[in-house]
Design a protein around this nucleic acid. Structure first.
Lengths: 241, 241
DNA sequence: TAGATTGTTAATCGATTAACAATC
DNA sequence: TAGATTGTTAATCGATTAACAATC
């Protein structure tokens, strides 16, 4: 997250054949390198900003600048998705945005359940960035009876004891874990057993998940530690050479 | 976040000489590859868990397993820090922990100010993981007069209008941005102007910072999008071959 | 046509892994 | 000494960059 680099891990997808021919349209998806997937989400955000500013066309050079990458990297990344630009002209913003969305699977119906209605869970439940990008928060759980039933945004907090039933009923296909380290693994196991295979964890522990479950981790303290490393280096001028 | 890898960017440190000789003790720090830095924070957490479990010694094999990496990667990463193990025996938990901490700059005095006292800002201010890992939250700001003065954890919310003065007085050397996208760049500029060079942003925008400022970004919606990509791939069995 | 910009190739760079000599 | 495990090297793999032919 990343850093995390965020801190991604244990994301196993089927990865059988590497088709060399770029395939467009509705055919089989090809493998996109992890680093490129992460950046594609950034391009998508930049494109949507342009779109709401009424910009219709953009060059790789300026989209790259807005995204903080080189134009070379940008064009290479886009080439994994397909070729949706026009030489000598650039990219049509809306058209490119739509194709990146499709490639990332954002046209699916993603229903997110949040486990943990503490400060972080509430912050996530109310975070506009989810809804606006096609993620529908359908449930929020807590084990504390004092919290169950409380209003959080549009939702009421469900009892964690009923998790399996509520996940089923709401059709949740992604779960966000916003709970203390010591209960995270147990809850994670229940979530997996309930058939959810995509999990984003904010708990500061290494979670073990079976093959085929996609787990990503965001650790806020880790991010500060990485920052600390760089800050310390900047303060201590290099004594080599 | 990220990268969450996570989505790291614009982290420039001085990087003059690459000393080939591993230097131990108090001498000049060498450059540690970004990927290794991120993992070292994970090892550190695993070591501290072992420590509180009363474990005194650990092999690269089992520390690697607890951290979700290969023992090869672990030993290579540790080699950037120094050689603090004993062949045929393993690593002394406390001793290794201390040396990783030192290498990451966690023995410094890090004072963190949080800008934005919304749900996320409050969650971060109360997040135990910061304090326990040597980051001291010294201030939290908001521009909303309805919120200024409120209690958040041990702190009271300061007026964002007084940011420069409070940053100065508290000696904050890191800032966490927990605010809406549209104000993030302006606040970021003020923070940089106030002399803070380490910034962790949760705002879903690309921020521009001058050379020499360390900026990391955590984007929760990005993490869900990456998850969506993998989930979609898993659902759509590969049609090549 | 002349100018611009994409999509792709090939070269470079960095990160991961396997293997093993060093050594406790 | 025999067994175990580190620290490091060399080989592999993947990601980034520069350059340019294709083409609007």
């Amino acid at each position: 997250m990343t850093s995390l680099d965020s801190t991604p891990q244990a994301v196993q997808g089927a990865e059988t054949g590497h088709s060399t021919q770029p395939v467009h349209g509705t055919e089989a998806a090809k493998q996109i390198p992890p680093a490129a997937v992460a950046r594609l989400t950034i391009y998508l955000r930049a494109l949507n900003t342009l779109l709401s500013d009424g910009v219709e066309r953009v060059s790789s050079e300026s989209l790259a600048e807005a995204s903080g990458v080189s134009s070379s990297t940008l064009r290479k990344d886009l080439s994994y998705v397909g070729s949706y630009g026009t030489r000598g002209v650039g990219y049509e913003v809306q058209y490119l945005s739509r194709h990146i969305s499709a490639a990332l699977g954002l046209t699916h119906d993603w229903k997110v359940a949040i486990v943990g209605a503490g400060n972080l869970g509430k912050a996530l439940a109310r975070y506009g960035g989810f809804e606006s990008r096609g993620f529908d928060v359908v449930a929020i759980f807590d084990a504390d009876q004092m919290v169950v039933g409380n209003e959080v945004g549009w939702l009421r907090v469900s009892d964690a004891a009923d998790m399996e039933a509520v996940l089923q009923r709401t059709g949740a296909n992604m779960v966000v874990l916003a709970l203390p380290a010591h209960v995270a693994q147990a809850v994670c196991d229940r979530v997996v057993a309930a058939g959810v295979h995509s999990i984003l964890s904010f708990a500061p522990v290494m979670l073990q998940v079976p093959e085929g479950v996609n787990l990503r981790k965001v650790d806020m303290a880790t991010e500060l530690q990485i920052l600390a490393y760089h800050a310390q280096r900047a303060q201590t001028p290099d004594q080599t050479a």
